[in-house]
Design a binder for these strands. Structure first.
Length: 273
DNA sequence: GCTGCCGGGAA
DNA sequence: TTCCCGGCAGC
């Protein structure tokens, strides 16, 4: 029965997003659906909170080279295929603008820097006149060429139920025991407390971006995860993590040391599982 | 009972 | 948007 249902679902673009996720036994896979449902560059500032908690930094061997999940591969997760296909040899680096409501993807860093300078920073100067600020507003995408075309366009039929997905894919969501992309790219791990707040005076469009510390908002599970399954009567609660959280580490007496999320009784953003 | 955190509400 | 908390579920 389940197999038949999945088969039928996989052939129905409109149903691709939500039901497939609902059948997924892995809560951590939810954001894949979101990444799938919405190709990079199609997001708008009105559909997200404006704060992104995507930390590419501390645990990253290369903060400037995040490796987003590949939608075609993500589809395998959605449909229960645990084995990860090898990355295509056509993989190359693209550059995606992180500026709010932009998401433009260009093929060269210089073009991206020029784009940011001209469009977002309003600078007319040459690169040598730049102070390098543009670097904070774009990220490299180690992607396959075909992903930018086939991969994304094939995902065009967005599920009407996937309402507020984040624009950027997040590998950290592939936490164990889900199949991981570790062989191809180290999973990105989110740290920091900024997912729920932005530092005062922060000038960056997506919260606090700093050299070597890029944070985009985590698609907080509560935003989408419970809503979709609940529609079909399945409630998936995020499995309780094993990691010690702020409460346990600092104790209730030092609540001021907790991360913002813990203080607000949200999912801890400092000690991830 | 303690803990993590979802869901919802107040400001 | 920020902040807080009731209440549920796992341990």
């Amino acid at each position: 029965m389940a197999a038949a249902a999945l088969t039928s679902l996989s052939t129905s673009p409109l149903l691709l997003g939500a039901p497939a996720a609902a059948f997924s036994p892995e809560p951590g896979l939810e954001p894949w659906k979101e990444a799938l449902a919405r190709p990079p560059g199609s997001y708008s500032s009105s559909s997200n909170s404006g704060d992104w908690g995507w930390d590419l930094a501390s645990d990253q061997s290369s903060p400037s080279t995040p490796s987003p999940p590949l939608p075609p591969e993500a589809a395998h997760f959605l449909f229960g295929e645990p084995t990860l296909r090898k990355r295509k040899s056509s993989a190359r680096v693209m550059f995606q603008c992180l500026w709010k409501s932009c998401g433009k993807v260009l093929s060269t860093a210089s073009a991206m820097q020029r784009h940011i300078r001209l469009v977002h920073l309003g600078r007319q100067g040459e690169p040598e006149q730049s102070d390098g600020e543009e670097d904070f507003y774009y990220t490299e995408l180690d992607v396959g060429v075909d992903m930018l075309t086939d991969g994304l366009s094939s995902l065009a039929p967005v599920s009407p139920m996937a309402s507020v997905p984040p624009a950027f894919p997040r590998l950290e969501l592939l936490e164990s025991p889900a199949p991981v992309l570790s062989s191809a790219a180290p999973p990105q791990v989110c740290h920091g407390d900024h997912a729920y707040q932005r530092s005062p005076g922060c000038v960056f469009p997506r919260g606090c971006l700093a050299p070597g510390r890029l944070e985009l908002q985590p698609p907080e599970a509560g935003a989408c995860m419970p809503a979709l399954p609940s529609r079909i009567g399945v409630h998936l609660r995020k499995p309780r993590g094993d990691a010690k959280k702020c409460r346990k580490v600092y104790g209730v007496d030092h609540r001021d040391l907790w991360c913002t999320a813990c203080r607000w009784k949200k999912a801890c953003q400092r000690f991830l599982d």
